[in-house]
């Protein structure tokens, strides 16, 4: 394919990865109070793990490093325990009246969300710059 805009591959991969991360964060926030999932247990917070499509191992051997695109390696469950709240009237309360809530911390999710959306914006800025460079290239020799 004709590659006019430089760096399109890594930037689109990053936009993709960041939007997956935003989706997972929104899922965590949406389920912050879900006490019963399909397995009958409270919702467990999920987290996106990033990795490089190509590791920079080559660079360590002295060869030129490749331009690497990030990708989502996996979406992992956070094993931390959730909070228990005393709500004897709740349908999911145990014998002592304690209800297990998900291990989602809204403040943590909001902070992660800001990082993810800022990173997304930064990649859009890169794309914009690349586009203007391509347009300038096309205008070489014109008046």
């Amino acid at each position: 394919m004709l590659n006019i805009i430089p760096s399109l591959a890594s930037t689109t991969a990053a936009l993709d990865a960041e939007s997956t991360r935003l989706e997972v964060i929104s899922q965590n926030i949406a389920n912050a109070n879900t006490t019963r999932g399909p397995d009958g247990r409270p919702y467990q917070r999920q987290e996106v793990v990033f990795e490089n499509a190509l590791q920079q191992a080559k660079a360590a051997n002295g060869a030129a490093p490749g331009l690497v695109a990030p990708q989502v390696a996996s979406i992992q469950k956070d094993p931390r325990p959730g909070r228990s709240v005393y709500q004897p009237g709740h349908p999911d309360a145990d014998a002592n009246g304690m209800v297990q809530f998900p291990n989602v911390d809204i403040y943590e999710e909001m902070a992660d969300m800001i990082v993810a959306s800022r990173t997304y914006e930064a990649n859009l800025a890169v794309l914009k710059n690349g586009r203007s460079m391509a347009l300038q290239d096309l205008s070489i020799g014109k008046h």
Partner: peptide, 8 residues
Amino acid sequence: AANVANAE
């Protein structure tokens, strides 16, 4: 661009 893409 690769650096920004891999910021995280």
